[in-house]
Nucleic acid binder design. Structure first.
Lengths: 347, 347
DNA sequence: TTGTACGCGTTATCAT
DNA sequence: ATGATAACGCGTACAA
């Protein structure tokens, strides 16, 4: 008996038309504020629609229009401050233009990413935004979208390609600044903890790190680069490994804040003093970076802004304002935020 | 020219029917694995469907079925660890049953909550889940759903009602345990920092706090209860106010972790020693509770589990497995996790 | 300014 | 086991 179905019948434009003894077409046009409908007819229609609680059936409309008014978003994971911010930015922007969001996470796996892409394709999203998983090495699973000329936008973790616009920050520069800052604090042996080198963001950060070292005539060493999954736990575990090194590093540049914090905690538990013995710089300006003591120096960039930019861009593609084949790369700003964890001088 | 529309035409069951010289009805049935279609016809149909890249048009199907296969979720805010976990749990569960999620946040405002509810109603979600904003005091804005017999489930921040199932933890008990723990550590003057008392969770936590005090013959005082928005900043600001009290409290029970942490940081900056001078207990077991030094004692409960339970329940309502009028209240478990911030004895 | 009539893609009913 | 057809609700080209 009582299943999930409603009991009150839905009102359609036919019902309204019948009650007003006019045609459904007129009702449809009035509801869209079509110019060629007389003001009084419109008023009659709007009033009755209100009264009987008419609501448009998006499905019928979308079926007709061959559009879904839905945008797909695929992210590596939802539960980071950065990603929530991006999504908030996207949501705000696209909602203003009548789009809804279909969100899914790849959990850093290219397989799930492909699955999600497939699912989104099948739900016929009007556009797609994605930030790539650690192990994504080709964009083949997005080919369907490209072929169908469905606009796609990559953000943060991107990959060079002709088919989609990319939005990111200058990771090379940011990493260079971060490393240089450590050098200026007097660090001579600087480690870099990062993720597998599949993604631009981690490759560029490594490159920036190398470049700062070279500039300071510090020799780059492969065994100073540690590859992890950048989780807080991973950072904690690496601390143990670092403590076993013959000589301790005096600076560590970590490719994200939570991992940096895990590592700091691991070292501090064993009595290492930060920053006096080991100075730290992280990446992302996650809120926890101010909770840890000493507060973490980091690279700040706005996820919210990135989401807004991505949203606006996609909406413009969907509008027709921005031709779909007009793809480009957009670089947003990022800043080094200096906090105690890296200030050797004052401690 | 190049707008958002695809260029390859979509394949429909008509196309398949035509190419196979059979009727669309047969194709439709085969695709649904209808028993009365011969195995070889099915095979032919599946093969061709694969070959030409047929994909079902959900909109047409939904229009026909008068269902959307979509579930709405309204939360106060997305960017907390707890809420991300709940959503992850919901998503996982309902996706298995073919439902998508429409997510929106109220930003702790009943107005936006009502707007979101309206929007979800208009997108005809098959079911709704919500956790209420700070200032929500009636469920009037959900009446449309109740009247239409669309299943609704409230979680965590709920409100007694006959129309929807509620899922929550025993906040009274948890708060009682938290406060009692502080008392056992020797605290005599215990503050409670919480949110406006509109929501069950905060009322119950206050009640549990009172009850533990009474049991220990500690007098409850109105001015020991501080109402804030529970943000980290609010906690930080309250630290300043607390420092101005004639006599410092020796224990503080805060209704969430981020606020507790803000307050701890504010006090520690001014040289207060935690837990020796002031012991702390928070709520939620947010990851930051282990980053702060000393680590924060807190109440742990699983957002993921809550999401799973809510998802399963809603799916059952939609199945028809669980009658829609069969509403109830489900209480999940929570635990006190003791960490340094509250351990007066050992420090 | 308004009405007629058809199509969007699917599925359920009734027939064969 | 399969086919013909109506219906879901809306928007629009074409008429009037």
């Amino acid at each position: 008996m009582a299943n999930g179905n409603g009991n009150e019948k839905e009102i359609t434009i036919y019902d309204i038309a019948k009650r007003l003894k006019i045609s459904p077409a007129t009702v449809s046009r009035a509801l869209q504020d079509h110019p060629r409908i007389s003001a009084k007819t419109k008023k009659k229609i709007f009033d009755l629609a209100d009264e009987v609680g008419y609501r448009r059936n998006h499905f019928a409309g979308n079926l007709r229009a061959q559009k879904t008014q839905t945008i797909g978003v695929i992210v590596p994971r939802l539960n980071s401050h950065f990603m929530s911010s991006v999504i908030a930015g996207i949501e705000l922007t696209v909602n203003e233009h009548g789009y809804s969001l279909l969100i899914s996470q790849s959990s850093e796996s290219v397989l799930k990413e492909a699955d999600s892409a497939e699912a989104m394709f099948n739900s016929r999203v009007d556009g797609l935004m994605a930030s790539l998983a650690y192990d994504t090495s080709t964009l083949d699973h997005f080919d369907k979208f490209f072929r169908k000329k469905t606009p796609v936008i990559f953000f943060d973790r991107v990959m060079p390609n002709k088919n989609a616009t990319s939005i990111l920050i200058d990771n090379y520069r940011a990493a260079y600044d971060a490393t240089k800052h450590l050098i200026e604090q007097g660090c001579k042996k600087i480690l870099h903890i990062t993720a597998p080198q599949m993604q631009n963001v981690y490759r560029d950060r490594l490159a920036g790190y190398k470049s700062a070292l070279e500039e300071a005539k510090l020799k780059f060493r492969e065994d100073h680069v540690i590859i992890t999954n950048l989780s807080q736990e991973a950072g904690y575990e690496q601390a143990a490994r670092i403590l076993k090194m013959k000589s301790l590093p005096d600076g560590i540049f970590v490719a994200n804040d939570s991992c940096a914090i895990g590592c700091m905690m691991g070292l501090m538990e064993k009595g290492i003093r930060i920053p006096e013995q080991v100075a730290f710089v992280g990446f992302n300006n996650d809120p926890v970076s101010t909770v840890i003591d000493p507060k973490l120096t980091t690279i700040a960039y706005s996820g919210f802004e990135m989401g807004e930019v991505a949203g606006r861009l996609l909406v413009n593609h969907l509008n027709g304002t921005l031709p779909i084949n007009n793809t480009t790369t957009i670089v947003l700003r990022s800043d080094l935020i200096v906090r105690q964890s890296s200030m050797k001088n004052q401690g």
